[in-house]
Design a protein around this nucleic acid. Structure first.
Length: 376
RNA sequence: GCUACACUGUGAUUCU
């Protein structure tokens, strides 16, 4: 049963929900773990209705099941139902309170989040970090800083959150100060600081920190690769890529994208043909690569050849059509694509806005709001 | 012993 549960979880993690369900159904008497794991597999993939069906079918629901549902509704933007679940939960633990706090924060209700924070039975480091993060995300840097100062045991994640906050606010000095307040920063934290330096185009600082890091993981190398690529040092980026102890799918994609972004179609093609595994990210990078070089038909050929397409890939091809003046094709593709998000809406609205059909752009903007997508 | 909460590296639009 333990092994079966692990299998359900693994299938769920890689998105094979059918397989996950098959394993679940092969279990004689699934235990509470099995049910919860299946439930979260569906919930974390955004299959809200299926999650709810599983939740309702469960022989018994514990605090884990309730919290998983709460989070699922929160991620789907349904704060109302999330709150109802929270109120109906037979018992609540710290995790449940934290999940509700985060739900409020995600929905932009900072005051409600803070009220919850103040009246919670206990607060742990997750609670504090979620609250700090909430202030950061909504641009309340001062309150974030105040709360942070009061924390007794910030962990790497909390520090990372503050580093990011100061970095986004353009206050590199404060970010550095926090980083240097840690005696032995772990790889996680160093990576965050590396990225911050990279974003502020401090390549020398990147190199110096990189050189001082006792341990490097995949993220370390990939951030360095990007830092060089961002400055246009493609040869150095390539050198980093080949110096890595091993390459994973993320670093391959980062290398590919570096060449795409630099406009080097030939190198991009070579990487694409060499990489051991091409996922949906690699394919859409290639769509963009051809589109940038005005190879409309090649872009389309790559797109059509994709084994699976996600919303990013669809949006990329819509943009390619629009950019080449094929507004009708862009619109048709937009209408028929299986899923749309804010970026896809922006893309099609801008396409109309740039054309003589800007009234249609305005019309689409209203449609976007009707679909319940929050415009930016 | 396995499940739920904040959480570091890769792709699309605009702005910086």
């Amino acid at each position: 049963k333990y092994l079966h549960n692990r299998m359900i979880q693994m299938y769920g993690a890689c998105g094979s929900l059918e397989e996950a369900r098959r394993v679940f159904e092969s279990i004689d008497h699934p235990n509470g773990f099995s049910w919860n794991i299946l439930l979260t597999a569906y919930a974390q993939r955004g299959h809200l209705q299926d999650s709810k069906r599983i939740f309702d079918a469960m022989p018994e629901r514990d605090v884990v099941s309730w919290t998983a549902m709460l989070t699922a509704y929160s991620h789907a933007g349904d704060l109302h139902t999330a709150k109802e679940l929270f109120d109906q939960m037979p018992q609540k633990n710290n995790v449940a309170w934290n999940a509700m706090l985060h739900a409020y924060a995600q929905a932009g209700y900072l005051k409600l989040a803070r009220n919850l924070f103040d009246k919670m039975p206990q607060r742990n480091v997750v609670t504090w970090t979620a609250m700090v993060q909430a202030y950061v995300d909504h641009g309340h840097l001062e309150q974030a800083g105040n709360l942070f100062e009061k924390m007794r045991e910030p962990n790497a994640l909390t520090l990372h959150c503050m580093i990011l906050a100061y970095s986004q606010a353009g206050d590199l000095a404060s970010a550095k100060r926090i980083f240097h307040s840690v005696l032995c920063p772990d790889t996680f934290l160093c990576n965050a600081m590396l990225r911050t330096y990279s974003q502020h185009r401090q390549l020398n600082e990147c190199e110096s920190l990189f050189g001082r890091m006792p341990y490097r993981d995949m993220a370390t190398w990939t951030v360095m690769l990007q830092a060089y690529a961002l400055e246009g040092h493609l040869a150095s980026a390539k050198r980093i890529f080949h110096s890595m102890p091993e390459q994973d799918d993320v670093s391959w994609n980062a290398m590919l994208h570096a060449f795409v972004a630099s406009g080097d179609l030939e190198e991009a093609k070579t990487v694409f043909d060499t990489m051991p595994v091409r996922d949906v990210i690699s394919w859409s990078s290639m769509v963009t690569a051809y589109a940038q070089n005005r190879h409309l038909s090649s872009a389309k050929r790559i797109f059509d050849g994709m084994p699976e397409k996600d919303v990013v890939a669809w949006t990329a091809i819509v943009f390619v059509y629009a950019q080449n003046g094929l507004l009708t094709t862009a619109a048709f593709t937009f209408d028929t694509m299986p899923e749309r998000n804010l970026v896809s809406w922006n893309t099609i609205i801008q396409a109309y806005g740039d054309s003589i059909h800007c009234a249609r752009g305005v019309e689409l903007f209203r449609l976007l709001e009707m679909e319940g997508v929050e415009p930016d």
